[in-house]
Amino acid sequence: MSQDVLLLGLISAVWAVLALAYALVPMLNMPGSALIWGSGAGLFLGLALWVRRG
């Protein structure tokens, strides 16, 4: 896997973890944040797959 794809995947993974934190950690309780960063995580995953397939 190329560095390009790996780095895009890394962005997706970190954002997914953050989205989960925003959704599940009671102290944060920010569903709006979870939605945006979760959508972003999915988007960057899609971009990584697009790049991988070329």
Partner: peptide, 24 residues
Amino acid sequence: SGSWSALGFGAFAWAGLLLVSAIA
């Protein structure tokens, strides 16, 4: 060559953030 220049990668990731901004 199957990979971007630094600028190409940066532009692609940045365009991704543009799309996230549209979602926001």
